[in-house]
């Protein structure tokens, strides 16, 4: 077990380093220097800036320096906001995004899973058809469209919640629902189909043949088995929530990391793009690691299994 964790941690670090290097060189491949977009700066000032950010060093030295700093957790200064570092930006933005993301994932789990079970138990009934239709809509509507539509209806039309901003409970409702929409629909569909599959298994018949009540059959015998596929998709799902927050934060004017990221892309703020990209990958790699651990905990076969060869 310990060996497994150690190996995974090492490979996680490796992945993040690969992402960091690839992104670093990609940014340097851009034809215009980082300051070219600003209105024609005098050559003097550009030179000063380049010196300040060590852009006049040879490329390999810049790279080695960057990786060195990265390993110490320092993502460097922002090119755009002269007085802030990328670490500052992440410190400011991430807690907001994390709070919003956590609410969305929670909503997805709390609503999506029961909805899927409910639909499966009423397979082909009208409740099932309705839930599945709505879920299919849910996975189809792009998040920025959902955001705009929700804002149109509930904020600008019905005036029940504020259209934008951050800080109050009411302000979190629309963005959270927007972000949770896709995962809810996705989980409901996944849980329904795995539930139907599990209910066809022989061990469920065995449980029924023992005289167990239907609720015991579902909650004791089926639930843990359907959680296994659910856990495997949680990693990608969390990724979807975070990347979804790029536009949602922009539309609802939420001061989260996603909004900074989009802004930094439009400003070509290279160090911020680079730093936040690395941060996101590290976060997701870590989430996937947690998911794997949960998976092993849920499925006893993973813990000991020998691969069978006939």
């Amino acid at each position: 077990m310990l060996k497994f964790i150690l190996r995974r941690v090492l490979s996680m670090i490796l992945v993040v380093l690969i992402v960091a290097s690839a992104t670093f060189f990609m940014m340097r491949l851009l034809p215009s220097g980082p300051f070219a977009r600003e209105k024609k700066l005098p050559a003097e000032i550009i030179k000063n800036l380049e010196e300040r950010y060590h852009l006049d060093d040879p490329l390999w030295k810049q790279y080695v320096d960057y990786i060195k700093n990265l390993l110490q957790g320092d993502l460097g200064p922002s090119f755009k906001y002269r007085n802030r570092t990328v670490n500052n930006i992440i410190n400011d933005g991430f807690p907001v995004s994390a709070a919003l993301g956590a609410v969305a994932v929670l909503l997805a789990v709390v609503i999506g899973i029961p909805l899927g079970i409910w639909a499966a138990l009423r397979q082909n009934g009208w409740q099932d058809n309705l839930v599945m239709f709505v879920a299919l809509l849910g996975v189809s509507v792009p998040n920025f469209i959902m955001a705009v539509l929700l804002m149109l209806i509930f904020a600008l039309g019905l005036h029940v919640v504020p259209a934008a901003g951050w800080g109050t409970f009411k302000q979190i409702i629309l963005p959270a629902i927007t972000l949770a929409g896709y995962p809810i629909a996705f989980l409901a569909r996944l849980v329904r189909s795995s539930m139907l599959e599990v209910l066809r298994q022989e061990y469920i018949t065995t449980a029924r043949a023992k005289g167990l009540s239907e609720s015991l059959v579902i909650f004791r015998h089926a639930l843990r088995n359907i959680l296994i596929p659910v856990v495997t998709v949680l990693g990608p799902l969390i990724a979807a929530v975070f990347t979804g927050s790029f536009v949602v934060e922009k539309i609802f004017a939420i001061p989260g990391l996603g909004r900074y990221y989009v802004t930094s892309i439009n400003d070509r703020d290279y160090t911020t793009i680079l730093g936040v990209t690395i941060f996101y990958s590290a976060l997701l790699v870590f989430m996937n690691f947690l998911v794997d651990l949960t998976y092993a905990w849920l499925d006893p076969r993973i813990r000991y299994v020998e691969r069978k060869v006939s």
């Binding site: 298994q201 022989e202 061990y203 065995t206 005289g211 015991l216 004791r220 499925d299």
Partner: peptide, 30 residues
């Protein structure tokens, strides 16, 4: 009646026991 008065043994023991529950739980529950 099921389990109490009529017990059942299935063909394929590889798939008729729940893989994520212990044998103890499955033995005792009926």
């Amino acid at each position: 009646v099921r389990g109490r008065h009529i017990g059942m043994i299935f063909q394929d023991p590889m798939v008729s026991l729940n893989p994520v529950l212990t044998i103890g739980l499955q033995m005792t529950e009926s």
